[in-house]
């Protein structure tokens, strides 16, 4: 059984990486709002259990096992955020409540909620495990916009530029040093910063 705090850590590390930031003791501590000393402790523990590789002063990389959990929890977080936002909860509560809920949502319930926020009917039989942040789509690959998390400003802007749900888009290429992604949508090309792209969830093919 994975503990809640293990999930929190893996999610935070995965999220940092998706956003293009380095995962270090300091950045993880800032992300989780805990003391760096306790982060070091926990990272060592997680490394022992095979979730990540940790070199003091250098940083953290997730093992495939750690990445799988981190990715899943982050996705649950975003799905819950979207769901709560659709329920009309104020923005200030979205993150906090999604943080609490993400650890207690069984996979099949997540799927049902996901289908709710996705608005697809009739319900498709598939598991939404192929719903990933745009940042994890490979160069040259096509995908379909599922939903856009995050604040109103960025998501409305992206929608205005053509990234509406169920639109097929293609990642043309991404810049070095975890720079922006070049995406082609509706016959035009956009550059989307990694921080923004991490909030765009797509169904990869």
């Amino acid at each position: 059984m994975i503990t809640e705090s293990t999930e929190e850590y893996l999610e935070a590390i995965y999220n940092l990486r998706e956003r293009g930031d380095a995962a270090t003791t300091t950045s993880v501590a800032r992300e989780l709002k805990v003391a760096p000393a306790s982060v070091t402790q926990m990272l060592k523990k997680l490394a022992k259990r095979g979730y990540l590789k940790y070199t003091p002063y250098r940083g953290v990389t997730l093992t495939p096992k750690g990445e799988k959990t981190g990715k899943k929890i982050l996705r649950k977080h975003r799905v819950m955020e979207k769901f709560l936002s659709n329920l009309g909860l104020p923005k200030s509560r979205l993150h906090r409540n999604a943080c609490e809920l993400e650890h207690h949502i069984p996979d099949d319930l997540e799927r049902a909620i996901y289908q709710r926020v996705e608005g697809e009917r009739p319900l498709p039989p598939g598991v939404p495990s192929n719903v990933v942040p745009l940042t994890s789509v490979l160069d040259g690959q096509k995908c379909v916009v599922s939903f856009i998390g995050g604040g109103w400003g960025a998501s409305q802007r992206l929608a205005d530029l053509g990234l509406t749900p169920r639109t097929e888009i293609k990642v043309v290429k991404s810049a070095l040093f975890r720079g922006p992604l070049m995406v082609s949508v509706r016959g035009t090309t956009l550059a989307i910063g990694r921080g923004v792209a991490a909030k765009v969830f797509v169904k990869a093919e």
Binding site: A154, A191, G193
Partner: peptide, 12 residues
């Protein structure tokens, strides 16, 4: 104000 990540058109 809300910091804005890069969202930019790449015209031909």
């Amino acid at each position: 104000g809300e910091p804005m990540g890069l969202i930019m058109e790449m015209p031909p």
